[in-house]
C-alpha cells in the first residue's frame, strides 16, 4: 500500500508542475504590461521605468521568470497584492478556511444523501421512490447554482425571512447565540452547493448500483441464502462504490466552480469571492495565486481519491 501511495504522489508532482507551467504561460502570453500605470505617469521617466523592469526581472526570458516564480511559490511566497499591498499568502490564509468549510460541509452532505438515495433507487428500480428521486436528480442537475442561489434568497430571505441574505465573517457575539448565527448564515450557501452535488452523485450511484446488482456474484450471494440487506450492503454496494469514488474526485473541480458562484451570491468571504474581486481590481498576483491553489487542491483531492480507490479495489495496486 505504501508503495502505491508513493507512486501516486510521484505522479502528482509533475501534474502540479505542468499546471503551474500552463498558468504561467497563459499569463506570459497575455497582452498588457504590469508597469502600464507608470507608462502614462509623466513623473516616471522612461529610463527609470526600464530600471524598474530590469530590477523586477521582467526582461528575462520566460523560462527564467518561470523558475523564479515557481521556486518562490514552493516556499509559500505568492508576492504582494497590487490592491491591498499585503502578502497574497496572508490574504489567502484568511479566506481558505471559509471556502473549505463551506465546500467540505456541502460535499459531505451530498455524499451522505446521494449514496443512500442512489442505492434505494437502484434496488427499487421503477418504484415511486425511484421515479421521484430520478426526476428530482435530473432537475437538480439542470439547475445552475447561480439560479438556485437566487431562488433561495428570494424564497427564504426576501419572502419568508428565515435566513440572512448575506454571509458575515465578523460575527463576534459570544456563546450559543453567536454559534447559531454562524451556522444559520451558512445554511443557504451550503444547501445550494449540496443540492447540485447530491443530484449529480445520485445519478452516478444509481447507475453504478444498477450495473452491479445484475452481476453473477450478487446472484450467488442471494443463492447462498444471505439476507437481502447483506447482499446489497456487503456484496453489491462495496463494488458499486468504486466508480462512484472516481466520480466524486473528478467532480471536485466542478464544486470549486460552484463555490466561486455561491460565494459571490451570498457574499461569503472565501477564495471565490476574493478571486472575483481580484479580477475586478486587476490584481494579478492574487488571481495567479488562487488559480494555483485551486489547481493544487484539485490535484490533492484526486490523489486522495486514487488512494481510496486502491483501498477499495485491491486489484488497482498491482496493475
Amino acid at each position: 500500500m505504501t508503495r502505491y501511495i508513493v507512486r501516486r504522489l510521484l505522479t502528482a508532482i509533475p501534474t502540479l508542475v505542468a499546471i503551474s507551467m500552463v498558468i504561467f504561460t497563459i499569463l506570459a502570453l497575455a497582452p498588457g504590461d504590469p508597469l502600464a500605470e507608470f507608462a502614462v505617469n509623466p513623473s516616471v521617466p522612461p529610463e527609470v521605468r526600464q530600471r524598474i523592469r530590469k530590477s523586477m526581472g521582467l526582461d528575462d526570458p520566460i523560462p527564467v521568470r518561470y523558475t523564479k516564480w515557481f521556486t518562490s511559490i514552493i516556499r509559500g511566497d505568492f508576492g504582494y497584492s497590487f490592491r491591498s499591498r499585503s502578502p497574497v499568502s496572508d490574504l489567502m490564509m484568511q479566506r481558505l478556511p471559509t471556502t473549505l468549510y463551506v465546500i467540505g460541509t456541502a460535499y459531505l452532505i451530498a455524499v451522505l444523501l446521494a449514496i443512500p438515495i442512489g442505492v434505494i433507487s437502484a434496488v427499487r428500480q421503477y418504484s415511486v421512490f425511484d421515479t421521484v428521486a430520478t426526476t428530482l436528480a435530473f432537475i437538480g442537475f439542470s439547475l445552475p447554482t447561480f439560479f438556485t442561489g437566487l431562488l433561495f434568497i428570494l424564497l427564504f430571505s426576501v419572502k419568508l425571512g428565515w435566513f440572512p441574505m448575506i454571509y458575515r465573517a465578523t460575527i463576534d457575539e459570544p456563546g450559543l447565540r453567536g454559534l447559531w448565527l454562524k451556522i444559520e448564515q451558512a445554511i443557504m450557501p451550503i444547501t445550494v452547493l449540496a443540492l447540485f452535488q447530491t443530484a449529480a452523485l445520485t445519478r452516478y450511484t444509481r447507475a453504478s448500483m444498477l450495473e452491479t446488482i445484475h452481476q453473477d456474484y450478487v446472484r450467488t450471494a442471494r443463492a447462498k441464502g444471505l439476507s437481502e440487506l447483506t447482499v446489497i450492503s456487503r456484496h453489491a454496494l462495496r463494488n458499486a462504490l468504486i466508480p462512484v469514488v472516481t466520480i466524486i474526485a473528478l467532480s471536485i473541480p466542478g464544486i470549486f466552480t460552484g463555490a466561486v458562484i455561491t460565494e459571490q451570491i451570498f457574499r461569503v468571504p472565501g477564495m471565490g469571492s476574493l478571486l472575483i474581486s481580484a479580477i475586478n481590481d486587476n490584481d494579478t498576483p492574487v488571481i495567479m495565486a488562487i488559480t494555483i491553489i485551486f489547481s493544487a487542491l484539485v490535484v490533492l483531492f484526486n490523489l486522495i481519491a486514487d488512494v481510496l480507490y486502491g483501498v477499495l479495489d485491491p486489484r488497482i495496486k498491482y496493475e
Binding site: I19, I26, P253, F256, L275, I287, T291, S295, V298, N302
Partner: peptide, 18 residues
C-alpha cells in the same frame, strides 16, 4: 492534465487577460 485544471478560475483568468 486538462481534467485537473480548475475550469472556472482558469476561464476567468483567460477572459480577464485577453
Amino acid at each position: 492534465l486538462f481534467i485537473s485544471l480548475p475550469s472556472l478560475p482558469l476561464l476567468l483568468l483567460i477572459t480577464y487577460l485577453f
